[in-house]
């Protein structure tokens, strides 16, 4: 188990390296410079200034050399300075990551708090109104894109009835809409998984055995069915984290939440290479860690599954 963990952690290095290679060359593939008029908005800079800026940031060197220099500084945990603000990338991320993390954790907790009971209840009352209602909700939640739901939510709660603010992140009231909407997708997905895996567990022989030996219904459901049904659910949390990250970019963009997602969108539009690279590497790292921890926890939760060597 320990060897497996170490091996997986070491495998992170080549994966992250390839991510860096691809994103770096892709981001630099665009013609023109991040300092010309198209990227800067309408007020163009004088050519001499552009050349000077490019020299300062090393953009006039061959791209392979730029990449090697970048990797060298990344190895020293120096992610360079943002082209737009001139501040250190790590400093900006350090400011914004807590906001994004708060949004993500709130959404994940909210999703779990609703999805698990909903999935369990609809499995126990299969083919009743409760079940159909929760399936309907799950279909809506997985089908309708979050930015469309945001639009309807802003329209009803913000514009029409003035119930909730929808720009910024200043007060806890501002947290409600982004958190709930970000949670909807994972929530719907988790509900479906929970229901399916409950239905599967409830038909197992050991459940019949538990009933046959006279255990109360509650004990059977909680200690025998749910305990086993939660195993597949745990594995979904990994992909759910990836979903929350991409989702948060959209949500932060719409609700002007001052987090990494909004920063990423802006950096992409302004071709702020150091910012794009920094944020993307962090995202890729988080996703890899989430997947890895699911794989590790899986083996502990379910001894029937042997971690492959």
């Amino acid at each position: 188990m320990l060897r497996y963990t170490i091996r997986r952690l070491l495998l992170l290095i080549p994966t992250m390296f390839f991510v860096a290679v691809i994103v770096f060359f892709l981001a630099h593939a665009a013609p023109g410079s991040p300092f010309d008029a198209k990227a800067q908005g309408d007020k163009g800079l004088p050519t001499a200034t552009i050349l000077k800026l490019e020299e300062h940031y090393g953009l006039n060197r061959p791209i392979t050399e730029q990449f090697l220099l970048y990797m060298e500084s990344v190895a020293k945990f120096d992610f360079g300075n943002s082209f737009r603000s001139g501040r250190q990338v790590s400093e900006i991320i350090g400011e914004q990551f807590p906001v994004s993390a708060q949004l993500g954790v709130q959404a994940l907790l909210f999703a779990l708090a609703f999805a698990l009971p909903l999935g369990v209840v609809s499995a126990l009352r299969q083919n009743t109104a409760v079940d159909y209602a929760s399936l309907f909700f799950a279909t809506i939640g997985t089908t309708i894109p979050s930015f469309v739901i945001s639009i309807f939510a802003i329209y009803f709660f913000g514009v029409t009835f003035h119930l909730l603010p929808f720009v910024g992140w200043a007060t806890p009231q501002h947290w409600i809409l982004p958190t709930v909407i970000l949670a909807l997708g994972p929530m719907a997905f988790l509900t479906r998984i929970t229901r399916a895996s409950m239905l599967e567990a409830i038909r197992q022989d050991y459940v019949r055995t538990a009933r046959a030996k006279g255990l109360g219904e509650q004990v059977v459901i909680v200690t025998h069915v749910m305990k086993n049904a939660m195993i597949p659910v745990a594995t979904i949390v990994g992909p759910a984290v990836a979903g929350l990250i991409t989702g948060s970019i959209i949500i932060e963009g719409i609700f002007s939440v001052p987090g990494m997602g909004r920063e990423f969108l802006r950096s992409i539009l302004a071709r702020d290479y150091p910012m794009i690279m920094g944020v993307y590497l962090l995202y890729a790292f988080l996703i890899c860690i989430a997947n890895l921890s699911v794989d590790l926890v899986y083996g502990v939760l379910d001894p029937r599954i042997k971690v492959s060597k």
């Binding site: 691809i22 665009a30 991409t246």
Partner: peptide, 17 residues
């Protein structure tokens, strides 16, 4: 290792000009 949408964002942002 790439979330689809992020990758699409980068491809589109860099190549659309």
């Amino acid at each position: 290792a790439f979330p689809d949408l992020l990758f699409l964002f980068i491809i589109m942002a860099t190549l659309r000009n």
